[in-house]
Simulated assay, not measured.
Amino acid sequence: MIVLGIDPGITNLGIGVVEQAGKQTRMLHAEVVKTTHGETAPERVGKLYRAVYQVAAAYRPQAIAVEEQFFYRQNELAYKVGWAMGAVFLVADQLEIPVYGYGPPKVKQALVGTGQADKHQVAYMVRALLGLKSLPKPTHLADALAIALTHCFYQPLAPGQPVS
């Protein structure tokens, strides 16, 4: 199974593609797409859309796994992350790829064994599970790969909930 993991953000969007064959997992692709405050909203969303589309078209994942966001007091941030998610959803619709969402505690639980793990512990497990020589950096990259791995681990046991 090939999974495209997305750490959504309008300024930094993490993309990680992981392949699972049996108990083996390997990284196929990883990048962070950056936009700037100087770009217009359509330019930023378009840049994210094109990047996600190119990766999805090249690797043909069976699923897209996204980090579900929980915002309480950051309305503007939630609004702009929504722009990034819109780009991802459009790609998913065009290429007919189901999208699954996982909250941070579920990702931490899947990789580290506790929903209270910190980002360094998650990055360390991503490195170990994918056999990388160093920790994936920046954190957006590690998070995207962690989300893809989470889907690989949970899907055979109890399928994640498709994002609706």
Rank of each mutant, 00 (worst) to 15 (best):
C152P: 03
K137D: 03
Y100V: 07
V18I: 13
H120S: 03
L129E: 09
P105F: 04
Q94H: 12
D143C: 01
K119C: 08
I6H: 05
Q69D: 02
K108W: 05
I2E: 06
P138G: 05
L48P: 15
T25D: 03
Y79C: 02
D143Y: 01
G9N: 04
T11H: 12
P8N: 07
G101L: 04
V32P: 09
L48N: 15
A65D: 07
D143P: 04
P136R: 02
K34W: 04
V163F: 13
M1S: 08
G160V: 02
Q62C: 10
R127W: 00
G115D: 07
H151C: 01
E68W: 08
Y49A: 12
L111H: 07
L4Q: 05
P98D: 09
L48R: 15
K133D: 12
C152I: 01
I6Y: 00
E43Y: 09
V33D: 14
Y102P: 07
G103N: 08
L95N: 09
G82L: 11
P104E: 05
I6M: 06
V81C: 09
A21N: 13
T36A: 15
L4A: 08
Q69C: 11
A117D: 06
Y79W: 11
Y100W: 09
V32N: 05
P105G: 02
L157D: 00
S134F: 08
K133A: 13
Q20H: 07
V107Y: 00
L145S: 04
A144N: 01
V18L: 12
H29Y: 15
A144C: 03
L141Y: 00
N75L: 12
Q20K: 15
I15P: 05
G131L: 03
T139H: 14
D7V: 01
V91L: 03
S164G: 13
I147K: 00
Y102C: 04
W83P: 07
M1H: 05
A128S: 13
Q24K: 15
Q69R: 06
R26G: 06
Y79S: 06
Q20V: 08
Q54N: 15
R60S: 12
R73H: 15
L141Q: 13
L145R: 00
L13E: 03
A117C: 09
D143I: 00
A41E: 15
A56N: 14
S164W: 11
K47P: 10
A56Y: 11
V18C: 10
F71G: 07
A110G: 05
